[in-house]
């Protein structure tokens, strides 16, 4: 995966008290405002997760996926991980394997094509990850 399409790595899947979390690397070559994320969709072991079963965590704050495109003052610094928390009702099991399809669409806020329209970057990845201890 290169700078334009890296989002997950082999250590990305972690346990949270009510499910699993994905540690995300920004799929671009610079830091971006959280509002640069247009949408996120995740399929976990063949099941597409409802949007309200996920939240986005960064800089010690948590946002619903609805709120993400409005966070224009929150910076996703290039060296920081953001977390996509998947609320599954129970903590995930360390060491178990899960197949994840991650789809994210970005709107690059400095690459204006014409007023109101910006260059997108779309990353779509399917990976099998082991839950880290």
């Amino acid at each position: 995966m290169a700078t334009h399409d890296t989002i997950l790595n082999s250590k990305s899947l972690e346990v949270i008290p009510d499910g699993l979390s994905l540690a995300l690397t920004i799929p671009w070559y610079r830091s971006l405002w959280v509002s640069s994320i247009s949408s996120i969709a995740v399929t976990l072991d063949g099941q597409e997760l409802a949007q309200d079963k996920m939240s986005f965590r960064i800089n010690g704050k948590r946002f619903t996926l609805d709120e993400v495109p409005n966070q224009w003052e929150e910076l996703w610094f290039m060296q920081d991980r953001a977390y996509l928390d998947m609320h599954l009702g129970a903590a995930g099991a360390v060491g178990s394997d899960h197949t994840i399809t991650f789809h994210i669409e970005l709107r690059l806020p400095y690459m204006q094509i014409k007023p109101g329209f910006y260059l997108p970057n779309i990353v779509h990845q399917t990976v099998t990850l082991k839950v880290q201890g």
Binding site: W33, S35, P69, W72, R107, P109, Y110, Q112, P115, G116
Partner: peptide, 12 residues
Amino acid sequence: TNLDMGRNRAKE
């Protein structure tokens, strides 16, 4: 430098 003119989706 960059100019992030579209950072706020509600208003350029």
